[in-house]
Deep mutational scan, measured.
Amino acid sequence: GSVVKEKKEKALIEVRPYVEYYNELKALVSKISSSVNDLEEAIVVLREEEKKASEPFKTDIRILLDFLES
């Protein structure tokens, strides 16, 4: 629970300088966080969101995924 939350919060802070739609990304992460149990599940849902998103938000999600998977 809290470790996953920390990882996601740290990821958002780390990617902030590189993303165009930070507030939207943060809102998406919050929405996903409330419906998943762990980081792996969150990553799966983020990948689905990435497929549906259009640029440049798609790239923002990709940047976040790269950080979460590192």
Rank of each mutant, 00 (worst) to 15 (best):
E50R: 10
V44D: 13
A53P: 00
S30D: 15
V36G: 04
L12I: 04
K26H: 13
K26I: 10
A53F: 06
S2M: 11
A27E: 12
K52E: 08
I32H: 03
D66I: 13
S2W: 02
R16Q: 10
A53G: 02
S30K: 07
R62M: 09
A11R: 02
T59Q: 12
F67S: 04
K7L: 15
K58H: 03
V3Q: 12
A11H: 04
L46F: 05
A11F: 12
V36A: 07
A11W: 15
E48L: 13
N23E: 14
K51F: 09
D38I: 06
P17E: 06
E48P: 00
T59D: 08
E40S: 10
L46K: 00
P17L: 07
R47L: 09
S30N: 15
L68T: 01
R62G: 12
E24Y: 02
T59G: 12
F67N: 13
V45T: 07
L46D: 00
S2R: 04
L46V: 01
N37W: 05
E50W: 14
R47N: 08
K26P: 00
V19M: 02
S33F: 15
S2E: 12
S70A: 11
A11I: 12
L39G: 06
E55P: 11
E49I: 04
A53H: 10
E24V: 05
D66V: 12
L39T: 13
E55Y: 12
R62H: 13
E6L: 05
L68I: 06
E41I: 05
E69F: 07
S33R: 03
R47H: 12
V15A: 07
K10F: 12
F57T: 02
E55Q: 12
E9F: 13
D38K: 08
I43H: 03
E40W: 08
E24I: 03
V36T: 12
Y22C: 03
G1H: 13
A53E: 10
F57R: 01
S35P: 03
I63D: 02
L68H: 00
N23L: 11
L65R: 07
E14S: 14
E6Q: 06
E20M: 15
K5R: 08
A11V: 08
I63P: 00
E14I: 08
S35H: 10
K51N: 12
K52R: 12
I32V: 10
L39A: 06
E24N: 03
T59E: 04
I13W: 05
K10E: 14
K31Q: 11
S54I: 08
L39D: 14
Y18I: 05
F67T: 06
L68A: 02
V29K: 01
R47A: 07
L64P: 00
K10L: 14
A53V: 05
E48W: 10
I43Y: 08
E40A: 09
N23A: 13
P56V: 04
V15T: 01
S70D: 14
A27G: 05
K8W: 15
E40M: 07
S2F: 04
L12Q: 02
A42P: 01
L39M: 14
K10C: 15
V29C: 15
S70Q: 12
I43M: 09
F57Q: 02
L28I: 04
N23C: 09
K10D: 10
A42F: 15
L65W: 01
K52S: 08
V36L: 05
V4G: 13
V4T: 08
E6G: 09
K8P: 15
K5E: 15
V44E: 13
E49Y: 07
L39Q: 05
R16W: 05
L65P: 00
E48D: 08
K52T: 07
A42H: 04
S54V: 10
A27F: 09
L39W: 14
K7I: 15
E24D: 06
I32Y: 03
L65N: 02
E20Q: 15
K10W: 14
V3G: 13
E41G: 08
I13A: 14
I13V: 08
E41S: 10
E24M: 06
D66K: 09
E20I: 15
K8F: 15
V45R: 13
V19K: 01
E49V: 05
S30V: 08
P56D: 03
N23M: 10
E49G: 01
I43W: 06
L28C: 02
F57E: 01
Y18L: 09
K26V: 15
I32E: 02
K52P: 00
K8N: 15
S70I: 09
Y22W: 10
I61T: 00
A27T: 09
K52W: 08
A27M: 08
E24G: 03
L12H: 02
K31L: 09
E40D: 12
E48G: 12
A53S: 07
L28A: 02
I61K: 00
A11T: 03
Y21R: 07
I13D: 13
K52A: 10
S30H: 12
E6W: 13
E41L: 05
V3R: 03
K51H: 12
D60F: 05
S33H: 06
E6H: 06
L65I: 05
I63L: 08
V36K: 03
K7S: 10
F57V: 03
E24L: 05
V44W: 11
D38M: 06
E48I: 13
E55S: 04
I43N: 02
L46Q: 00
A42I: 15
V3I: 09
E6K: 04
D38R: 06
K26C: 07
Y18K: 05
L65K: 03
T59C: 12
L64D: 00
L12S: 02
V19L: 03
A27V: 08
Y21E: 07
V3E: 13
K7A: 15
S30C: 15
Y18P: 02
K10N: 12
I63V: 09
E9W: 15
S70P: 14
R16C: 06
V4L: 14
S70F: 12
A53C: 07
I63R: 03
R47F: 09
P56C: 06
S30Q: 14
S2K: 06
V29Q: 00
V4P: 07
E24F: 04
K31V: 12
L68Y: 05
S54G: 07
K8S: 15
E14K: 05
L25N: 00
K8L: 15
V3T: 14
L64S: 00
S30I: 10
K58Y: 01
V15N: 00
S54T: 12
L64Q: 00
L46E: 00
A27K: 04
Y22T: 03
E20D: 04
S2D: 13
S35Y: 12
V15E: 01
S2I: 09
E69I: 09
E14N: 09
K8E: 15
L25G: 00
K51Q: 10
F67I: 05
D60H: 03
D60N: 03
E24W: 04
N23T: 10
E69V: 08
R62S: 11
K7C: 15
V36F: 07
S70V: 11
A42R: 02
E48H: 13
K10I: 14
V44L: 11
A11G: 03
L64G: 00
E14P: 01
E69R: 10
E55R: 06
P17M: 05
S34F: 06
K51I: 11
A27N: 06
D60L: 03
Y22D: 01
A27P: 01
K10G: 09
D66W: 12
G1Q: 13
S2V: 10
R16I: 06
E55A: 10
L64H: 00
V29A: 03
A27I: 10
E49W: 06
R47K: 11
A11L: 10
K31T: 09
K58L: 02
E48F: 11
I13M: 10
